[in-house]
Design a protein around this nucleic acid. Sequence first.
DNA 1: ATGTGC
Length: 473
Amino acid sequence: MATTKISGKELRQLGYPEGKVIGIAIKVLEGKYKGKSKKHKLELLGSVIKAPEYYLKHDSLAPIAKSLIIKTEHNETVELNKNRLDYHIYGAEGIEPGAINQMEIAMKLPVTKAGALMPDAHQGYGLPIGGVLATDNAVIPYAVGVDIGCRMCMTVYDIHPEFLEQNSEKLKKMLIDNTKFGNEVFKRPMDHEVLERNDFNEINILKSLKDRAYSQIGSSGGGNHFVEFGVGEITDADNEWQLPTGKYLAVLSHSGSRGLGANIARHYTKLAMDKCRLPKVAQHLAWLGLDTEDGIEYWNAMNLAGDYASACHHQIHDRLSASIGEKPLMMVENHHNFAWKELDRFDNEVIVHRKGATPAGKGVLGIIPGSMTSPGFIVRGKGLVDSLNSASHGAGRVMSRRKAKETLSKNEVDRHLKQAGIEVIGSGLDEAPMVYKNIYQVMAHQTKLVDVLGTFTPRIIRMCGDKRFGEVD
DNA sequence: ATGTGC
């Protein structure tokens, strides 16, 4: 059914600036002009933004006009530096120009100290996905990303991978019973200490998010998130867990901080963009000073969302472990959308944002997933300073979600998956293997950044169905 | 990424 509702996106297209005015405009239009045609509403909004001063005393539209004018008065623009700082790009030939352009802009921020671009990079909001940015005493919500604490977690069992073939139906059912995707949640969510954290009472925005955090804990969400059974192979005899090299039954999960992190990101991004007005090309890179109340609040909320995301993974693996009836031999995990306080090459403290990048400090363990039909890699960081102690967070997309849905055929993708011997519950064409770069090429671009200890090859995958957001399987 | 909003 066609809707007459005005969206934030349409307002931005009309030139409405990011911030409160968009909310005010939607409220006014959907209140006083409810039921009017979309065309009529858009014409009104277009007139108001062209000459807000004429609408200051208008019966209904004055709040929009006022908000637009205040906006302009407070428009103290922070200038970008004329020259950008240098930074390393890994695998530049495989990275789209838009992503590199975004990184160049980030390297001109007055708070930027260093940066690096990973081989799986592609365009995002503000900082590209695969971008790493070190700043001085400032945190950029959009350089962390909207899914704060999005992360990987893998467990390995003392079970031969033959088990996968002998029990594939049982394992499928295990995934269906023990994981939740889309807007499905567990009827009886497990408790976790992260839900008892004081931040939920001390930070205003978190008070309203606690209930949903409670109900969503242990769930996986949508998009590229997954939980899968597969073959874990340990190839490095000198591995941290002293596991014999060889193949094991393994579980790999990818998900983040659900509604909690999304709402924290939304709130503080808006706040940053309101307070830190940058030229349009850089507007999404607005920062909050870590010596300000807002900045400290974001930092604490971000850390809470990170711990929450971690708790979700642990519950996913705990449930599956209970279902399998064995404790895992090892667990390896890492954030790839987050910011940390770290030391730079001069031993000064900097804020390192990794937006779709795996921490790869010396000896730091992580997982870099491939695609449904290609392996992920268990890695140990080499601590290369030029990479800002980072590596890619996956293969990286080569095809947009929209293009995938328009150009790929379900039959073709299904055939490809079948040939590879992969079983998939849920998912959609936008997550098909061919939308991702070749993971072997991506890994080849980062041999200086990480050592490989082993691999994970997917076999039974569960993701969110793509019929419509929230509809599962 | 996310009850696609404000």
